[in-house]
């Protein structure tokens, strides 16, 4: 039997969840024995080259590119996992939810206290740039997500246990210390 294939991505996240994947330490050698990585920042494969078994999503959807990537993950992956608070509920980027886009951009590029270098008061507005969404959406409000692993970041043991459970088909143990929201 061929190895299960894993793909990962970071949408509106900080890559902390990917760091937590690496935080499984020496078990990463076991992981390489168990699975094969496809599209992922871990191996720098940019596009899907084959059907994927497990897709891991970090971060919520804050712009049109995030939505597109998330939809391509849903299309190419049998199982999708929301990894971390941002994928689950928008996380810190979702602090802007409820504030109009224009106000956010104004604060970031024109009115804010740290925009001194932007003397011309230019607000990015190019067709090449992904369009910001009206708010940051949790991934499961855009596509169907099969499993959720909370945490900021999710504990390495939680990620490891979830992957092992998915690959072997055994139930997850979920000890108290590993399920945390921060």
């Amino acid at each position: 039997m061929s190895k299960p294939v894993i793909a990962t991505t970071s949408l509106a996240g900080c890559f902390g969840c990917h760091m937590s994947i690496l935080d499984i330490d020496e078990r990463i050698l076991q992981l390489i024995e168990l699975v094969e990585f496809n599209k992922s920042p871990v191996d720098d494969i940019k596009t899907f080259t084959k059907p994927v078994d497990i897709g891991i999503i970090e971060g919520g959807c804050c712009n049109s590119e995030n939505v597109e990537v998330l939809k391509s993950f849903r299309k190419n992956c049998k199982i999708l996992i929301s990894l971390g608070e941002c994928a689950i509920m928008g996380g810190l980027p979702a602090l802007r939810n409820g504030i109009p886009i224009e106000e956010c951009l104004h604060e970031a590029y024109i009115g804010g206290p740290t925009v001194g270098l932007n003397k011309m008061g230019i607000m990015p507005n190019d067709d090449e740039l992904p369009m910001l969404l009206d708010k940051v959406y949790p991934c499961h409000e855009i596509v169907k997500i099969d499993y959720f692993l909370p945490g900021c970041p999710p504990r390495a043991d939680l990620i490891w246990d979830a992957l092992v459970a998915l690959i072997t088909g055994d139930p997850m143990k979920l000890p108290y210390e590993v399920v945390k929201f921060d």
Binding site: E85, A94, V179
Partner: peptide
């Protein structure tokens, strides 16, 4: 937003989320 909350770890609502193993709320935010 638990990750940015000063009460995180000492919050009773969060602790109940842990107790009942809330992985994600089933209702829209």
């Amino acid at each position: 937003f638990c990750p940015a909350c000063e009460k995180s770890g000492n919050c009773e609502l969060q602790a109940l989320g842990y107790l009942y193993q809330m992985m994600v709320p089933r209702y829209p935010y």
